[in-house]
Design a protein around this nucleic acid. Structure first.
Lengths: 220, 220
DNA sequence: GTCTGTGAAGCTCTTCACAGCG
DNA sequence: CGCTGTGAAGAGCTTCACAGAC
C-alpha cells in the first residue's frame, strides 16, 4: 500500500455529507450575485457551527480571504470537483416499483448532476415499457447495459429477494457504489460502497425521540 | 431540569438507528421459529460487529442468556417498546408530488407500525382528490386536522418555499417531529426533532467515495 | 476591532479484551 | 471450552480558543 498522500484522506465522511449542503447553498447565493460570504453567515444558513464549517473547508485546503470571507463561486466549483459532480454522471436503477418510479420523475437528481440512464426490473410486465422516458430492461440485460453505459452507481429500489445477486453482478459489470433503499444488509468488496436509506428506520428514530421526550417529562 | 435518570439517556442516537435493523431481523427470525440467537450470529446478519451489538443491547439493560444467547421474541418486543412502535402511530404527509405519492403507496410503513392518516398540499388541483385512499386537504386545514388526529410525526415532501411555516404551524398543532425529504435546513425548538433524508446528497457521497478510490489508485 | 485557520481539549462512538458464568 | 456484559483503550468528530492577518 502506498503511504496515503496527506492532502487526500483528510476529508472525513461526515464532512462529505455536509459539503453537499454547503454547495447547494453556495449555488443559491451565486445566483443571487453574492460574491463573498463569511463562515458564520454560511454556517447559519445551512445550520452548522462556524467552527465546523471552517474545519470542513480547511480539510481540503480551501483558503478564504480573511477580510472578505469565502469566494462563493470558487468554493462551489471546488466542492463540485471534490465530490465529482462537476460533470454529469450516469446512474442506473433496479426496481420500478412505487419508489423507483418516484425517483425516476424526481427532478432533483438532474439539477445535482446525476442522470438515471437505465432502468431494470424482474417483472416481465414492466420490461419493455417506458417509465418517465426510460425503457425498462429485464435483469438478464444487467451486465450488458451497465458495461455499455459505464455505470458506476446503481440505485436499488427492488425487492429484497435476489438483491445481493444484483449487487454482485453489478460489481462484475463495473459498478462501484450502491444507493440502497431496501432494508437489507448488503455485502460488497472493500473498494465498493453501499449507502443505505431506510425510511422506516428514520421514522422509528423519530418515534423513539418523541417518546423519550414524553418519558422525560413524566420523570421531571 | 431534573437530573436525568441513568437508565434513560444511555441509549445513543447511533444505537437507535441500529435497533431498527435488529428488530427487523429478529422479526424475520421469529417467523422462522428461531427462539434464541447469539450475538455473533445476529451481528453477522445485520452487518455489525458482535461487540457493538452486545453494547447496543446492553445500553437498555437487555439481559441475554449466556449459554443460549438472546430470546428472539422477547428482544423484538422490547425494542418495539423502546422505539414506540408497539402500537400503530398515525403520521401525516405534506406535499403530494412524485415522492409524496410514492410514500403513500409504500407498504413498508404499515408493516412497521406507521399509518399515513392525513395528506396535505398547496395545489388547489390536488386538494379534495384522493391519493392512495387518502383525501388531500388544503394547507388551510393543517392545524385543525393535525390536532384532531393527534398527529405527532409529519413527513415533508413539499417544495422548499414556505416549508418552515408549515413546520411552525405543525408544532403549534402538536407535532413533535419531522421526516424531511426537502433539502432545506429547518429550525425547531429543543423539544422537537427533524430527521433529514437528502437523496441527492447520498448520491454525492457515493460519487465522492468512488472518485476518491480512483484517485488513490492513480497515486499508488 | 473582525475574520480565518488550527492546535488542543472535549466529547462520542467503536473496538478490544477479559472477568465471570454456564 | 464459548458466550455475555463491560471496563478500558482507541478512533473519530466537534468545539473551544487563540495566533495571525487585515
Amino acid at each position: 500500500m502506498a503511504p496515503t498522500n496527506k492532502k487526500d484522506q483528510k476529508v472525513s465522511l461526515h464532512t462529505v455529507e455536509r459539503l453537499s449542503a454547503y454547495r447547494r447553498k453556495l449555488e443559491e447565493l451565486g445566483l443571487d450575485e453574492v460574491e463573498y460570504i463569511h463562515s458564520h453567515e454560511l454556517a447559519a444558513l445551512v445550520g452548522v457551527t462556524p467552527a465546523q464549517l471552517r474545519r470542513d473547508l480547511a480539510s481540503f485546503g480551501s483558503y478564504g480571504n480573511i477580510s472578505r470571507g469565502y469566494d462563493v463561486r470558487r468554493m462551489s466549483r471546488t466542492i463540485s470537483q471534490i465530490i465529482g459532480t462537476d460533470r454529469i454522471q450516469n446512474v442506473a436503477l433496479v426496481g420500478v416499483g412505487d419508489l423507483g418510479r418516484a425517483l425516476l420523475s424526481y427532478r432533483g437528481f438532474e439539477e445535482r448532476g446525476f442522470h438515471i440512464t437505465a432502468v431494470f426490473d424482474v417483472d416481465p410486465d414492466k420490461v419493455g415499457r417506458v417509465f418517465a422516458g426510460r425503457r425498462c430492461y429485464g435483469l438478464d440485460k444487467l451486465e450488458t447495459v451497465l458495461s455499455d453505459l459505464q455505470i458506476r452507481i446503481l440505485i436499488l429500489t427492488a425487492r429484497p429477494e435476489g438483491l445481493q445477486d444484483v449487487v454482485d453482478r453489478g460489481i462484475r459489470a463495473g459498478v462501484r457504489s450502491f444507493l440502497n433503499f431496501v432494508p437489507k444488509s448488503l455485502s460488497v468488496p472493500e473498494d465498493c460502497f453501499v449507502e443505505n436509506i431506510d425510511i422506516s428506520a428514520k421514522l422509528e428514530k423519530l418515534s423513539f425521540l418523541s417518546r423519550k421526550k414524553a418519558q422525560m417529562e413524566v420523570n421531571a
